[in-house]
Design a protein around this nucleic acid. Structure first.
Lengths: 204, 204
DNA sequence: GTCTATATCCAGATAGAC
DNA sequence: GTCTATCTGGATATAGAC
């Protein structure tokens, strides 16, 4: 690990611990131990435990913006601009969304952090709904509108279709954070769901 | 408040506080203050903070069983046995499910308790998935199978239909715990969703 | 920038009077 | 069964040497 990264290491260690245990349950000493330092070292980088917390909130926001930009581009500006708007393309994209969201990386940790510490920062509750529920609806309403325009799906209420399409996936992401060992089960349910959706709404 | 209820009052106060703030963030003194006692009084009823926690877990389990029994009976053994299997009956039942689950009573508190303190009791994570996601799927798969048998809905994959039917509702219950002020918005979305579902799957 | 030692505070839990 | 007073441990945060 490079020198000068210590500040970032503290942030990552705290993110992990807060995400798993909440804010009050985690001591500064625990965070420092993860990094291989003693507690007072942390105070050279952050003036208080709360300041470290706030730094994570900010980082989570940046991480989210970037991630959404990448997802949007992957769907709407990909090299192969047809692929995302086929049944197989959608299965690939949504499975991918699921996997990166639940895998042991920043998106997962940020998501669980927001959930675990929301009582320490009331605004986080709204952030969770907005990011992980309603933004998804908006994104997939655009996807489904496009699928309707292209004649892949029948013309129907795109908002309601998006809700039925992506709500189960969002719910399985949450379920999978709680029971990661069931990941494969959720993935196969997810594929079954999308195929069913395309049968119901697909144009013959 | 009747004498002899003190033990129950401690449990209710702790349930509320743990549900909102998690386990470590709540002190025994806070719980006692809610009841109008000092902290040591609690130790006459529960040997430790952890024992109080365990008592809540147990009570939540009992509460859940009873609630599910009532919901099942309301659907399958109601006086008017046709009503639950019509579009209007379903709107009524699901709205009711939503309202009681998010309103300020035991079901709400138990649900939020399980979510907030799950890091203190790993089994609770599985309990949440089972109670609030997969049991719902099972229940509504039975409802939809019946609706298909009765010729109200077209014959299709009842499992996938149940998932599309109830997942958005479950998600809005969670969203509504975080933003209760949006309850009416979620309720009208819920009605729109059910009407859409009956349009898509309803027999002409 | 990191350590050891320490100040300060507050938590869970107990003792003993009433 | 409830109180006040208290014990004990562990938390955040600081002081000062290196």
């Amino acid at each position: 690990m490079r020198r000068g990264d210590t500040k970032q290491q503290f942030l990552l260690a705290a993110l992990k611990l807060f995400a798993e245990n909440g804010y009050d349950s985690v001591s500064v000493a625990q965070i420092a131990k993860q990094v291989g330092c003693s507690a007072p070292a942390l105070y050279k980088h952050y003036p208080s435990k709360k300041a470290l917390f706030d730094a994570i909130v900010e980082a989570s926001s940046n991480g989210y913006e970037e991630r959404m930009k990448r997802i949007n581009e992957a769907i709407f500006n990909s090299g192969n601009s047809e692929r995302p708007f086929t049944e197989e393309g959608q299965i690939e994209i949504v499975k991918n969304l699921f996997i990166t969201t639940v895998s042991d990386e920043y998106p997962k940790l940020f998501r669980e952090f927001v959930l675990s510490v929301r009582s320490k920062h009331p605004e986080l509750a709204k952030i969770y709904n907005s990011r992980y529920i309603f933004s998804q609806y908006e994104l997939y309403q655009k996807v489904i509108s496009r699928l309707i325009e292209m004649g892949v799906l029948v013309d129907n209420d795109a908002e309601m279709m998006a809700i039925e399409y992506i709500s189960p996936v969002t719910l399985w992401v949450e379920a999978c954070s709680r029971e990661p060992e069931r990941k494969e089960e959720f993935l196969s349910l997810l594929e079954k769901h999308i195929r069913h959706f395309f049968i119901v709404y697909g144009k013959k």
